[in-house]
């Protein structure tokens, strides 16, 4: 499918989802749907680095938090509309991604993962001690109830996240079918051979960390407006790091479809479990599912379906 056709399909599907939710008329669905969409963006972003190039990032929460806190910073100094804040959050998180890349990409495998985890801890410490941004007490954002054209504010946020999810998926798919995507695949399969073939590996890895980080930051930027209150413990939560790894793993890491399926499945399940039981149980579900998939279907749902189709044809 051509990129333009694919973009059209994405937009139509997104519009249908929004129309259906509005028709159903339950405000809570927008509230829960926002979280699902946010995880679609996070999982897709994680997969650009983790799935395509094979570098496992444990610091997703840090990028998400950079986006969220850049919004808080501007909310306090110079209030801007959220779409602009999303772009700014993306730029900041992208820069953090680039910096992280420079510092850690000489490490491989588990060492890289530990490096990214350390980055999250360092950033959390900085934010916790930065009183202007609320420090450990957290920061409040008073948001309006309604907004022109859309109506309820939650629907506006939902719409923004929907747009962001469409953009993230299009970026991921675009990369997959490009020279860049093949370059990433060579790094994942064999970095030495990639270099011998003339793939500029360091440059490509930096591109991957930057794009991946930027998308995560964009997902985090509207978050303070969604919750109204942000504290370091929330945005640096384990939930984000674990989910952005678990979702692509369960969905399948080799294509853009995997994180999408994984995020919809897991995030919906968690929302359901949170309402029915408790949010802790939601995280437990993720853990159990991750173990089951790693053991039984290491290539995720996409891998399962592909294997099943190959067996049939």
């Amino acid at each position: 499918m051509k990129s333009s056709t694919f973009a059209l399909v994405c937009v139509v599907v997104a519009a249908l989802v929004f129309a259906a939710l509005r028709w159903y008329g339950n405000e809570y669905l927008f509230f829960a749907g926002y979280v699902v969409l946010q995880f679609i963006v996070l999982a897709t972003a994680w997969n650009i680095l983790g799935g395509y190039t094979g570098y496992v990032n444990f610091g997703s929460a840090a990028f998400f938090a950079v986006g969220a806190y850049s919004s808080i910073f501007f909310h306090k100094t110079f209030p801007l509309p959220i779409p602009v804040l999303i772009v700014i959050g993306g730029v900041f998180a992208g820069l953090v991604g680039l910096g992280m890349g420079y510092l850690t990409l000489r490490l491989r495998g588990a060492f890289f993962a530990i490096g990214t985890l350390a980055l999250a801890v360092v950033l959390q410490t900085i934010i916790t001690n930065w009183t202007y941004l609320g420090g450990s007490r957290g920061a409040y954002v008073i948001r309006p109830d309604e907004i022109a054209l859309v109506g309820p504010y939650v629907q506006y946020l939902f719409l923004l996240m929907l747009g962001l999810a469409v953009i993230a998926i299009m970026v991921a798919r675009g990369i997959e079918h490009s020279q860049l995507g093949y370059g990433f695949a060579t790094i994942r399969d064999d970095e030495l051979a990639a270099e011998a073939s003339g793939v500029p590996t360091l440059k490509l890895k930096l591109i991957a960390t930057t794009i991946s980080g930027a998308l995560m930051g964009m997902a985090g930027a509207p978050f303070p407006y969604y919750l109204g209150y942000v504290q370091p413990g929330t945005v640096f939560g384990l939930e984000y790091a674990v989910n952005s790894i678990a979702m692509p793993m369960i969905g399948g890491t080799t294509s853009w479809v995997g994180p999408l399926i994984g995020a919809i499945l897991l995030a919906s399940l968690q929302q359901w479990a949170t309402v029915k039981f408790s949010s802790e149980l939601g995280v437990l579900f993720v853990g159990v599912l991750l173990v089951v998939f790693v053991v039984l279907a290491p290539k995720g749902i996409v891998g399962l379906v592909e294997g099943w189709r190959r067996g049939k044809v």
């Binding site: 093949y182 695949a185 060579t186 994942r188 399969d189 064999d190 030495l192 051979a193 990639a194 270099e195 011998a196 073939s197 003339g198 793939v199 500029p200």
Partner: peptide, 22 residues
């Protein structure tokens, strides 16, 4: 390395080092 490759110098690495999943 990529500039060296651009000059037309190619390496067949030890142990083949293919991209096995492609």
């Amino acid at each position: 390395t990529e500039q060296i490759v651009d000059l037309g110098i190619a390496l067949v690495p030890e142990g083949r080092r293919l991209f096995p999943r492609l």
